[in-house]
Nucleic acid binder design. Structure first.
Lengths: 190, 190
DNA sequence: CGGCTCGGGTTGACGCTGTCAAGTCGTCGT
DNA sequence: ACGACGACTTGACAGCGTCAACCCGAGCCG
């Protein structure tokens, strides 16, 4: 009947992390919330790390989806900016996933290759946009630096809002959204 | 004699985290490495969170010191860029501290006000630089956005190098340093 | 000198955790 | 009819953070 135990475990894990933080994620509590014995989750996940890795993979997949959507609409000249906004919006919408995604010690790349693949997909979106905007004559080093610059800005803004001092002073709401717009506009208008 | 047990505990904690990650930090293992019983550290730290908070505070203090040093030397026009480089350099030099510093759930600001103070000091350096570079006529919103932009770029670059895909492809070494320079130069030359 | 407090530890216990090992039970293929 | 197997349970173990109680030597007070 409960082949969806797997889904229930993932769902319960996300909620647990949202409520108590990553440290509060416990195999046994997840099982309790799913109404099964403490060992049942092991039928679907080898260990605790495998649960987290599944969430990380799902996070990168969702991020890649949103970046792809944002990278298609609008004028070519605005695509990079729109995609940057989509990146920050994802982090603020899905803080649980976003935070997990950038703790590589949680999802060993060798052990969970699907995580790496999903991450590469997200990176690919950005790379394509940069290639498109730089044209075919830019040097590889310049290309790489441009990718890093755009990603760093969006990623830094997202993490500082989420876990840094910007988050402490700027609560979720329109003021925060306005600040994000302002920062990204300032960056683009150079 | 061992009033330096406190120092030994902090030292051992940093080494443990460097070796096994934050999850490997264990009150009991720290005590073992310091050669004392499993309860001895409790004489100096209320609990595990207090150890981590002490490290976070130390991290922000060291960062603020380095930013202050960088923000004083060189031409005024180059100070922002130099300070950005110092920020990234700190993250790469002290990855253990840097990673702890941006997990606010580890060091509750209400419980450990010294952490907040140290963090504010680091932020103050950046704020002063931005004020200096914008002149007195800029609007507060513009000021805030500029601070966020610079900090986001440096912070994003640092965290992506440390825990993101940039770190996976760019090992420590001159190539990485060159990349950092290139990104920051690209950003400044607008 | 005798006794007391007190810092700086120690030992022991508790409930919690992740995970290994083994057992149970219904359903399905042959 | 039966055996295999998937889905799950029960039980055990070591290690963890932390509470509680105890110990011991140095310093002060009478």
């Amino acid at each position: 009947m409960s082949l969806d135990l797997k889904a229930q475990v993932l769902e319960a894990s996300v909620r647990l992390i949202a409520e108590e933080g990553l440290a509060g994620l416990s195999m046994r509590e997840v099982a309790r919330r799913a109404g099964v014995s403490h060992q049942a989750p092991y039928h679907y996940f080898d260990d605790k790390a495998a649960i987290v890795a599944a969430l990380v993979e799902r996070g990168f997949t969702r991020l890649a989806d949103r970046l792809e959507a944002a990278s298609r609409e609008g004028l070519a000249s605005q695509r990079l900016a729109r995609t940057g906004r989509a990146y920050v919006a994802f982090a603020l919408d899905e803080p649980v996933y976003f935070r997990l995604m950038f703790r590589p010690e949680l999802a060993d790349r060798a052990r969970f290759p699907a995580v790496e693949a999903a991450g590469a997909r997200a990176l690919g979106v950005l790379r394509r946009l940069v290639d498109e905007s730089l044209g075919p004559r830019a040097t590889p080093a310049r290309r790489e630096a441009t990718v890093s610059m755009h990603w760093s800005l969006a990623h830094g803004l997202a993490t500082l809002l989420l876990d840094g001092p910007l988050g402490a002073s700027l609560a979720p709401g329109p003021a925060r959204d306005r600040h994000v717009d302002e920062v990204l506009r300032l960056f683009v208008e150079r």
